[in-house]
Every structure is written in structure tokens, then in C-alpha cells.
């Protein structure tokens, strides 16, 4: 799975550089987020602008990351969620669990 972790305005941003998150690559996403959190960072902005498809295992991987971040008194925030992907969060009511922002600027502004 292609992931890019970078610092933008001193914030940790994880770019998911894949069109699909499914049972083939979701375990890797889950593990990568966990490894990041285990390094002591506890706030992560996940950029999903390139993702146009997500299945139940992909939602599960992000939910796992969210729970792990919260357990460490941190947070995992989603940005640039494409409409059809967002519809899956709505169908599972996970849009009530995650903080979801239209872009990074909006997400960063909401943290202050």
C-alpha cells in the first residue's frame, strides 16, 4: 500500500495514495497507523483525497486507528473524503465517530 507520512504546519499528515482500500491492503493501513502511534505521536490527519473506494475492512482499519489514538489521549482525523466513500461512513454511522473535514486547512483550523 502506498502511504506517505509528512509534517505539514507541524501536523502529522498521512496521505493514502491508493484508489482502493479493501481486504487486500487494509491490514497494512491498520498496522502503519498503529506503528505511527507507538512512536509516541498521538495526533494524525489522514488524507483520503485519492481514495475512491473503501470496503468494510478499510473502515475497520481506520476505526482501529481512531480507537488506538483515543486510547493514547490523541485523535485521528479524516480529510478530503470523497462523496462515495463518505456515503459508506454515513451508512455505518461512522461519520458520527470520526471528525471529518473537507480539507487540511479546515482540519487544522478546527484544532485551535
Amino acid at each position: 500500500m502506498k502511504l506517505k507520512l509528512e509534517k505539514i504546519d507541524e501536523m502529522n499528515v498521512l496521505q493514502v495514495q491508493e484508489e482502493r482500500i479493501d481486504a487486500h491492503n487494509s491490514a497494512e493501513l491498520k498496522e502503519s497507523i498503529l506503528q505511527f502511534l507507538e512512536q509516541g505521536e498521538n495526533r494524525l490527519f489522514v488524507q483520503l483525497s485519492q481514495v475512491r473506494f473503501i470496503d468494510s475492512s478499510g473502515l475497520g482499519a481506520l476505526l482501529s486507528g481512531y480507537k488506538n489514538a483515543v486510547n493514547r489521549s490523541g485523535k485521528l482525523v479524516l480529510c478530503n473524503v470523497q462523496p462515495q466513500v463518505l456515503a459508506m461512513f454515513e451508512l455505518t454511522r461512522l461519520n458520527r465517530v470520526f471528525e471529518i473535514y473537507s480539507d487540511l486547512n479546515e482540519a487544522f483550523a478546527a484544532q485551535n
Binding site: D55, S56, S57, L59, G60, A61, L63, S64, M88, L91, T92, R93, L94, R96, V97
Partner: peptide, 19 residues
Amino acid sequence: APDFNNPKENGMGIYFIKT
């Protein structure tokens, strides 16, 4: 069926198909 108030990482696939 998924528990929306206490979401789990697994078990949403069959829910998607049924829904």
C-alpha cells in the same frame, strides 16, 4: 447487525450486502 453506538472493526461486510 452492527451496533452503531459501539462500532466494531469487523462485521460490516454482510451488513453492506444486506442493506
